[in-house]
Amino acid sequence: MVISGRDRKKSKIKNVIFLTLTIMLSLVVVTSVYAYFEYKQGVKEAMELTDKLDIPNEEVEFKGVEDSIGNVNILLLGVDARGSESSRSDTIMIFQYEPETGTSKIVSIMRDTYVEIPGYNKQKINAAHALGGAELVRETIKENFDIDVQYYATIDFSGFSHLIDTTFPDGIQVEVENEMSKNIGLTLYPGAQKLNGKELLGYVRFRHDSQNDFGRVERQQEVMSQIADEVTSIKGITKIPNMIGTIQPFINTNIDNQTIMSVGTEFVSDDTNIENLRIPIDGSFTSKTYDGVGEVLDPDLKENREVLQKFLNQNPA
């Protein structure tokens, strides 16, 4: 049988297509296997450390609400002693990632913000975690600012320190403005430098200067941006599975591994400039003192609610 030139050309094209698909499929399989083993290795390394630290992994009921336009909204909580009923949240943030635009945003809610805590009357917002955990913090944010979040991630200070050392062994670069020492268990001196986990924890917790809690919130947002830069510039996409495995044992969260992997990979692929907002905003609150509560920031809730909803692209009906 004589094979025409046209048939030979068709056969060649089919072979090229078959070879291309085979290569693509092989890459997917290899990448998946690599990601799995990198993730498991990260978990193994972190679990060895968390077992020594005796960091608990408690069950948390969290009735998060999915964003109506597809954004990923995560409630980030830093607490004094995870697992303790009396642990107030020292840090309250909302992290938002917009998959369509690659935009990342962080909202810091001042811990002394005076709000209505459902079932407990008006108190500082940081009391919500002590009274009802991450779920009550979510309900409090919804009650006062009409903002829904779908996910939460809680980390205690010991976990934060070791997480930084494990994930970023060379430290995180920051600019220390002034000497810092009061109530942080160490002394930090002015200047640009890389801080290890314990030092970085002291840096983000320090509030005994002229800016008190406001300076502390600015430093927290600065560190979040620096961590994002470290992830994208040093670790890269190939390190994401290992990093996720490393981080996971240190936090309590309801984010499933598939979502973490997907968002993490997209986040690293995009420009990591992070937009920041602090609540209450300047000029929208008064400093007051209430019996049994102490000094608080009493906000104009209507103004702050509108600003926060606009910033996070949430416009409840």
Results as ranks from 00 to 15, higher is better:
Met1Ala: 10
Met1Thr: 07
Ile3Lys: 11
Arg6Tyr: 10
Ser11Met: 14
Val16Lys: 12
Ile17Gln: 11
Leu25Met: 12
Ser26Ile: 10
Tyr34His: 04
Tyr34Val: 13
Tyr36Met: 04
Glu38Pro: 11
Gly42Val: 10
Pro56Met: 12
Glu58Tyr: 04
Glu58Asn: 11
Lys63Trp: 00
Gly64Gln: 05
Ser68Trp: 09
Ile74Glu: 02
Leu75Glu: 04
Ser84Trp: 13
Ser86Pro: 13
Ser89Ala: 14
Ser89Gly: 12
Asp90Thr: 14
Asp90Phe: 03
Ile92Pro: 03
Gln96Lys: 12
Pro99Cys: 03
Ile109Arg: 07
Met110Gly: 01
Tyr120Arg: 06
Asn121Cys: 03
Lys122Glu: 10
Lys122Pro: 13
Lys124Glu: 13
Asn126Thr: 09
Ala128Gly: 02
His129Ala: 05
His129Trp: 05
Ala130Arg: 06
Gly132Trp: 11
Ala134His: 06
Glu135Phe: 10
Thr140Trp: 00
Asp146His: 13
Gln150Asp: 11
Tyr151Pro: 01
Tyr151Asp: 08
Asp156Pro: 04
Gly159Asp: 01
Ile164Gly: 00
Thr166Lys: 09
Phe168Tyr: 12
Asp170Lys: 03
Ile172Asp: 03
Gln173Pro: 02
Val174Arg: 02
Glu179Lys: 15
Ser181Cys: 07
Lys182Phe: 12
Gly185His: 07
Ala192Pro: 06
Ala192Met: 04
Leu195Tyr: 07
Glu199Lys: 03
Leu200Pro: 11
Leu201Met: 10
Gly202Phe: 00
Val204Asn: 01
Ser210Ala: 08
Asn212Phe: 14
Gly215Val: 13
Val217Thr: 05
Glu222Gln: 09
Glu222Ala: 01
Ser225Lys: 14
Ser225Thr: 07
Gln226Ile: 07
Val231Arg: 01
Ser233Met: 14
Ile237Val: 14
Thr238Lys: 09
Pro241Trp: 14
Pro241Thr: 10
Ile244Trp: 02
Phe250Asn: 02
Asn252Ala: 11
Asp256Tyr: 00
Thr259His: 01
Ile260Trp: 00
Ser262Asn: 15
Ser262Lys: 15
Val263Cys: 02
Phe267Ala: 08
Phe267Thr: 05
Asp271Gly: 08
Ile274Trp: 09
Arg278Ser: 09
Ile279Gln: 01
Pro280His: 10
Ser287Gly: 08
Asp291His: 08
Leu297Pro: 15
Asp300Ser: 13
Glu303Tyr: 02
Glu306Lys: 14
Val307Pro: 04
Leu308Lys: 05
Leu312Trp: 02
Asn313Glu: 11
Asn313Val: 02
Pro316Lys: 10
